[in-house]
Design a protein around this nucleic acid. Structure first.
Lengths: 146, 146
DNA sequence: ATTCAAGTGGGGAGAAGTGGGGGGAAGTGG
DNA sequence: CCACTTCCCCCCACTTCTCCCCACTTGAAT
């Protein structure tokens, strides 16, 4: 159950020929019937529950449209987002621009990362993970102070 | 549904020989039967729902007419605007002056950018996007929290 | 062994996007 | 004021794609 404590875990799923992935059953209840998927940091996709997304939107609204870099960021971020509703089997369609961004092929990892979910290409995640294993204890120290 | 959370997504559509484009079906309900199209910032067109347009107009009214640059801006912005009603297929006619301004050819991208929609020439947007991808993580940090 | 939940694959109806013909309004010239 | 041209808009038709549903497989639990 992810109700209060957030999303955890690592799941290997399949992107079918129609661009669909099944979300892990454990995540569905917390995600609810509608949620958002957007370009994330580090070549993966972020999946936001509705309330999380609302917070992101609120932040974006405070940015003045006259600032060029802010305009560009908003444009890039929102045009790369999608509102998703899973079908009866719990699958969502990932639009082509998002699949391209994360370099997704047939096999994808779905990660629970606290307040959000992440979607990774299998190979990309495995490579990233190797790097993280080596750094793990070092990272722990530098994060400790936060 | 874009009702509360605004417009999101990226759609590649076609400008036909009569100067028409189909608006993405996902946007239609939120846009309503009448809306406004105007010259936008960064060589694209802005599409505002009625209420958003009203807000833009309110802002313009607060600008003193005595300032020459403000006069010029208002004049240019409003003279290039048009009230649009989609036909039964959900298409709108883009006047020639707006098509010229945004450099639109046959293929156009339609972007959901929160409170507004943007219309871009395909090539122009793709070039712009390449630049943005590189900046994305940097910009994200300055917007923070994501 | 049986049952059930979860993940995967694919067929088919209906929506969405695109192209183009034709009637009527608006503008122009006589 | 009338005739003619042009342009706009409404509608019909075709294609593509999205979404809904059904079915099979696997693995875990009873």
């Amino acid at each position: 159950m992810n109700g209060v404590n957030g999303f955890v875990g690592e799941y290997l799923h399949t992107l079918d020929s129609k661009g669909r992935v099944a979300l892990p059953a454990r995540f569905r209840e917390t995600l609810g019937p509608k949620f958002f998927i957007a370009r994330g940091l580090d070549k993966c996709l972020f999946v936001y529950p509705n309330e999380e997304w609302a917070q992101v939107m609120d932040k974006l609204k405070t940015i003045p449209i006259s600032r060029k870099d802010a305009r560009h960021f908003t444009r890039y971020f929102l045009s790369g987002a999608t509102e998703a509703e899973p079908d009866k089997q719990g699958r969502v369609v990932l639009p082509q621009n998002l699949r391209e961004y994360a370099g997704l092929n047939r096999d994808v990892f779905i990660l629970g990362v606290g307040s959000r979910i992440e979607i990774w290409d299998k190979d990309t995640w495995e490579e990233t993970k190797i790097g993280l294993e080596a750094e793990f204890s070092v990272l722990a120290e530098s994060v400790a102070g936060i």
